[in-house]
Design a protein around this nucleic acid. Sequence first.
DNA 1: CCGCACATGTAAGACGTTACATGATTGT
DNA 2: ACAATCATGTAACGTCTTACATGTGCGG
Lengths: 179, 179
Amino acid sequence: MGAHKVNATEASLLGFLHAGPMTGWDLVAAAQQRIGAFWSLTQSQVYRELAAMSEGGLIEAGEQGSRARRPYRLTDAGRQAFEDWCGSELAAENIRFPLLLVVMFGRDVPGGRLAEIIAEHRKIHAERLAEYERSRAAVPEEERDPYAMATRDFGIRYERAVLEWFAALPDVITGEDRR
Amino acid sequence: MGAHKVNATEASLLGFLHAGPMTGWDLVAAAQQRIGAFWSLTQSQVYRELAAMSEGGLIEAGEQGSRARRPYRLTDAGRQAFEDWCGSELAAENIRFPLLLVVMFGRDVPGGRLAEIIAEHRKIHAERLAEYERSRAAVPEEERDPYAMATRDFGIRYERAVLEWFAALPDVITGEDRR
DNA sequence: CCGCACATGTAAGACGTTACATGATTGT
DNA sequence: ACAATCATGTAACGTCTTACATGTGCGG
């Protein structure tokens, strides 16, 4: 009861800690790799939230290991806080996509800059998709975690949608009208 | 030249002001409606940035109208700042999707909560897609702005991708295994 | 003439980013 | 013994969110 209410960033750290104690450093790496595509957080944030959650009793620091490694483990209160978060109303997804701002205001974007930006980003997204598909293929059949697969598949579908969107843009925008 | 460097949020306001003077109130409404799907901003932010940009000479307040309406118009410096922003390196898109956190940590989400959340969000996205398609169909052929169309189409493709992702989720996750 | 929507603004705090500081340990 | 990397942490700032305060004018 009355346990501290956590935000989504803290909840994600608690989520990782279900699998066993981890240090801040490990959490940063895990977050970047496993949820970085749809939930960004920085090293600075991680250490701050760890300190706060430790203060609040949601996690406990263990014995300090070599190189000042400080592993944190989930407490019962932390487990409860995670479940409370799951039970609370989830915020809607928040997308901030500067490229779309440029497209929206494309009429007033100077010269060929719009086409240039689009070409640039098209390439970035093609690479990201390739990367996701490579990583998907790299997981041996028998050790596929359905949850991790699902989130990666989201990324794949997202990147495909973006690429199809690029492909369907009219020439006025992609700048392919000058032949 | 040395004009103030603006962030993406300010750039979006400058973008709107290219079409003519607008008040803070109008900008909030316009932003919510026209870029809200991929760039959220709040009323509070708008008034703050307007004050700051006015201070910096990027925009100028006009005569106060009724109900204290205060229209701002773009200055040359503001136009320049907008172009500078277009010329700068655009930040990558930033997606924060709590639902995907829940999926990622699905193994530790209590009881049928995961399935429940998914069903909920599936509905939300279906409705959003329907809304986009309705709004798309509502624009008369002759007054279609290709830029606005392009950003809306992004939304449509995004929502379709999300719905297809939902549809492809395994039963372990959607909870349809108990028959 | 009164209630509601319009319109601007402020304050405080939560959250996120960037840069830097500090020291330990590993490998060479 | 030295450089590179590991690992934690702090400081400062920028941005976003939430809530509130204040007043105006339109419509019934």
